[in-house]
Each structure stands twice: as structure tokens, then as C-alpha cells.
Design a protein around this nucleic acid. Structure first.
Lengths: 258, 258
DNA sequence: ATGACGATTCGCACATAGTGCGAACGCACC
DNA sequence: GGTGCGTTCGCACTATGTGCGAATCGTCAT
């Protein structure tokens, strides 16, 4: 390896290249040709073709017959499906969320904690009770201003929380966001005690959220079930919603494998 | 490379290994430890760790803080999402399928042709009009016995069809399945002429299916919109269903990008 | 037919990038 | 303070991946 130019990610070069190809192809709605790929990655043609042959052989890429552009293949779908399973987004779990939505008359969410991220695994909503703004199924940064974010942090010990805050900080999103670390710690203690997290206008104005923990059979907190309602409705409905969310989280936990 | 033992897939070794790791981790609901991965793949620990570091760095793998097992990361989700886009499974398209289902009182399907496979991109059904048996969203082998399969074959020239049949054969699934190649070719010609494929009890007994082609802006047939009904209802409803399916396919085509 | 152009494969020489082994390190738990 | 993981490091070796150029194939236009 030359001392002059150092590769960015210190990793297995060809593995990185393979992954980058997948991303590149995925980002192109109609796929890419071998030449385009080689060019954009600065690869010789042989190299590109060999990498592509491997990816195609493993069904991560395919081509329409007669076409020269590569598109994502079925293995990508299989991986995605495997992820869904890991995220607990199975049909019985979806049914629980749907029932929660119907009972609470509010959008219901299933989130799963992954590393320092949160994955929104499923949302049960309706035209009458739509999901929060831009919240969508997929990975999102964890935040100390959301009910499920608090739950995630509460599931960790102080050292881990400190590490998290050091990395991500405690940004202020609304006037009510908690930015003081000491106060946040107190909140997390309360979350641990109640096994429930509540957030009122800390994430988005006028909105409140209640979340209860989902546990693996081993007892580990792996995610959260939550609902969001308008902040002004919260006082009158808190008790009812808490019960509904706790029940939903319990039911999901019972349907979590492994 | 030793002449004695030859590697299976003639490809880039480390890329293959990286992909295999992803599959392995995906297949384990709760993830795997580095040691397990190294062992199952027959890798030295350094090698395994370096591969894992690369995959983690690119966010294809993550770990829960404190945990030693690797799980699928957010990049997998992003890839899967990119595939969904390539499969045209966007919200407006889903809405079209839903409308078709409501109008036709039958389960509606969007399929996308990929290589020699068919991807079921979306299904709009209901408890009253449930989807066909084990049909599910995801990739499936193309078949000459399904309406969308016929449509896919019809979108190809004779040589490509020949190649397909040589590889996959023309199996008999029901008493009505067409297994004679000449007859099949005639059917495909008719499909091309009508821009519509119909199948009656060729795939599953008592079921019939009508499919119309989805076209890219460039005019290429990229998939199909279809509905399935009970075979005995077909005669009385054929005209109505044909109109509905054609309309649905047209609407989807208008919502296909690139 | 002929030629020209893009896509794809092949052959080859080179050395980088990847590999395995063993040892060292860090860390938690006993 | 020791024992048992999980993880990193150092090193020597060469298989593995690489780039270049040329050969081949296929398609389309002339």
C-alpha cells in the first residue's frame, strides 16, 4: 500500500467495492451498465466485470434479457426480508399494532433498537389518525426527544448513555426539549421505574407520545410500541392510552422469537 | 490456486465471503458472533474480523451496544428500499391497485419482470377477496401457466422464449396447463395481439387470472397488473374485468419513473 | 457483405491486497 | 490474580485480485 494515497475505509477492498456497486445500482432507478459502473468507481474493466459476475452469480444483481444494464436481484430482496424478520415486523405483530390503533384511535408504532439507531419497523395508522409528519418505516437516528428514544436510552446503563450523548449530543428540537443531561438522566430513571416513556411536545409541537418496552424472551428490551396523540388530548386520555400501549407492547413481546 | 480443490463460484473470493456473511447473519434471527461466522465459513479469525469490520463500517452490519453478535444494519434496509423503488412499489402505484381491487371485487397484483424471474411487488386484497394461496410479495419463478408469466414471455422474442423454455421447461401444474410449445407460442402471439393475457385453471384449479402489461415511459413492457377470480365467474365478468385490469395497468404505467 | 462500434472475455505479468497463524492485549467474571 | 472470551496486532507468504491490452462476439449502419 503506497504511503502517499491511503484508501478511505480501512477494510477489504473488493468487499467494499462490491457493496458500493450494489449501492450504485440501487440508486439508479433503471440500473447501470458495466461501463458506467467501472467508470464511476474508477475500476479497470476486467475488475468491474469480475465483480459484477460475482454479484450476478450470487443473484444480488440481474439483467433483463437483452439489456446491458444491471439491476438489483432477488438476493437483495431476501436480505431485506431477513431484516424485516429481525425487526419483528411479522404479520401477527402487525395485527397487534392494528388493534392498538383501533382501540386508541391514534397512530401506533413499532420501533426496534439497533445499535445507536432506531428502526421504525411498522406503523398502523389511518386517514382519520395519520402517522406523525415525516416519520416513515425505516432506520432513523435515535433521539432523546422521542418517547421510544427515551425508552432506548433507559434500556442502557449510564456509561452507554454517556457515550451516546457524547456522540449525538442532546439537541433542542422544540421549546420543551430536554437538553440538560442531569434532567435527562432523572427522566430516564423514571422511565426505568415506570417501564413507560412519555414525551410531550419535545419532538414536535402540539404532539405527545407514549411508549412501552418490547422485550425479548430473554427479557432484554429490544424495542417499543407507542402511540402519538395531540398534546392537548393527553391529560384526559393518559390513563387509557397507557393501558393500551402497555397491552400492545406485552402482546408484541409474546410474539417475538429468539 | 491449487489444482486439487477448486472454489465453487468463479468469482471474487472476498466479495463472495462478504455476501455470504450477510446471508448468514440474516438467517440467524438474533444474529451471530464473530467466532460463529468464522467457524461456519471456515475462515481464520483475522480474516473474519476484517471482513466484519468492513461490513460494519459500511453499515451493513451493526451490533447492540455491549453485545457481541452481529445483526443486519441500516444499509441493508436502504438497499431493500431501493429495490422497492425499482419494483415500482410506490404509494401512488399501491393506490391504483387498491382501487382496482375495490372496483373488481377481486385480489389485484402488481408484478415486475426481472431477468427470468417475476417479482410480486404488491398485492391489494381483503378478507372478502383474499390473495391466491401461497402467493406472496417477493421474487418467484416465472411460469408459463400464469397470466403475468405469459405476459412476460410475450414481451420477449422467440429466441428468448426458446431459451427460457429450455432452461425452465413447460411443466404441467393442472389438467389445463399448456405444455405443448407450439400451442404456447400461439397463445403468446394472441397475447401480443390483444395486449392481454388470460389464464383459466392452468396454474391452480378453479382459478382464473387476467393480466395487462405495465410499460415504462420508453414503451418497454416491465411488468403486469392482474386480478384473479374464480374460474366459474370468469365468463360473466370477463369484459368488466378486462376493462378494469387494462385501466389499472395504464394507470400504473403512468406512474412508472425512468 | 463489410466495417465499425460497444460489450464482454481472455491471457498474462505483477504485486498488492488478502490470508492464516500465533501471540498479545483488553476485559469481564470468578 | 487468574481464567476464558473477544478482539487486535505483527508478520511472512502467496494466492488472489488487479490492470493492461488484445481477441472475440454481436449488433447495427452503410
Amino acid at each position: 500500500m503506497s504511503a502517499v494515497e491511503r484508501r478511505s475505509g480501512a477494510g477489504i477492498q473488493s468487499a467494499e467495492r462490491a457493496l458500493r456497486i450494489l449501492e450504485l445500482v440501487g440508486a439508479a432507478p433503471t440500473g447501470l451498465t458495466a461501463a458506467e459502473i467501472a467508470e464511476r468507481l474508477g475500476l479497470g474493466q476486467s475488475t468491474a466485470y469480475r465483480l459484477l459476475a460475482t454479484l450476478q452469480h450470487e443473484d444480488y444483481l440481474t439483467r433483463q434479457p437483452g439489456e446491458h444494464r444491471y439491476i438489483l436481484g432477488r438476493s437483495v430482496d431476501e436480505l431485506g426480508r431477513a431484516l424485516q424478520v429481525q425487526l419483528v415486523a411479522t404479520d401477527p405483530v402487525r395485527a397487534v399494532l392494528r388493534a392498538l390503533h383501533d382501540a386508541a384511535h391514534a397512530p401506533a408504532y413499532l420501533t426496534v433498537f439497533r445499535g445507536d439507531d432506531i428502526a421504525v419497523a411498522h406503523i398502523a395508522d389511518s386517514p382519520e389518525h395519520p402517522r406523525i409528519g415525516q416519520l416513515h418505516v425505516g432506520f432513523a437516528e435515535a433521539s432523546h426527544t422521542t418517547a421510544f428514544g427515551k425508552l432506548m436510552l433507559a434500556s442502557r446503563d449510564d456509561a452507554a448513555v454517556a457515550r451516546f450523548l457524547e456522540k449525538r449530543g442532546a439537541a433542542r428540537l422544540t421549546a420543551s426539549s430536554v437538553t440538560d443531561v442531569a434532567t435527562l438522566r432523572e427522566q430516564l430513571d423514571e422511565v426505568r421505574a415506570q417501564q413507560l416513556a412519555v414525551e410531550v411536545e419535545e419532538y414536535l409541537p402540539k404532539l405527545a407520545c407514549i411508549a412501552a418496552p418490547v422485550r425479548s424472551p430473554a427479557g432484554r428490551v429490544v424495542g417499543a410500541v407507542s402511540v402519538s396523540v395531540s398534546a392537548k388530548d393527553l391529560p384526559s386520555r393518559a390513563w387509557e392510552l397507557e393501558r393500551a400501549v402497555r397491552r400492545g407492547a406485552w402482546q408484541v413481546s409474546a410474539r417475538v422469537a429468539g
